[in-house]
Amino acid sequence: MSEPSLAIRNFSDLANPTRFLALVAVLWPWLAGLTLCLFAAGLYLSFTTEGDYQQGETVRIMYVHVPAAWLSMMCYTVMALSALGTLVWRHPLADVSAKAAAPIGAGFTFLALVTGSLWGKPMWGTWWVWDARLTSVFVLFLMYLGLIALNRAMDDPARAAKVSAVLILVGFVNIPIIKFSVEWWNTLHQPASVVRMGGPTIDPEFLHPLLIMAVAFTLLFFTLHILAMRNEILRRRIAVLRRHAARAAGRKKGAA
């Protein structure tokens, strides 16, 4: 066998897990370093900029809340693309990607909910309102947890991946409907009493730290994602090795 080339020429080259692992090994320190630098810059900016005259200091919560909320949606999109990859192209890494993304997505969604409610308490005077946005993010959180539960309930990773890919796609089709219906539901019952999230018009003062933090969080997500994918690949390898070892041991005993 010739030496496998580690150069990634196109997307299907990523299908070889060994190549993917090699790429991750090269890539992840850079990604992690970049993430740390951006976080340093973003945190510095978000604590040195002026507070909003209306919202005061609490506007700083926005710099973690908005990126977390944005990631919670982007992560689901990544999972839906991976699900398509599993079902349509049968890309061997797609199911690994979907499985690795689920806990990370759940984490960021949880963060978005927690910071949102910490922002809501001083601004709206309550920890939780059944606002359209909050409710749909909460439903998203429930769906992440359901997906994790489904993945954990099945022993065979290949079958679990396919079946949860179906669920991810059904959920992805449903998310716009849920969002739209929740908005309709909310406007029917409590019109305009809720303070809008985009209260202050964003000016560059807030926009710069927000953007940097958003990019930093996104990079953090991708770093965690590829590392979690690496763990998942290793986990599957170990399972395969164990099975081979058990089979070999059984054969030996049978021969003896």
Partner: peptide
């Protein structure tokens, strides 16, 4: 598990 998975998807119908 069916109930857990399906309930969030059934929210629009309920609403």
């Amino acid at each position: 598990l069916v109930s857990i998975l399906v309930l969030p998807l059934a929210i629009p119908v309920l609403i």
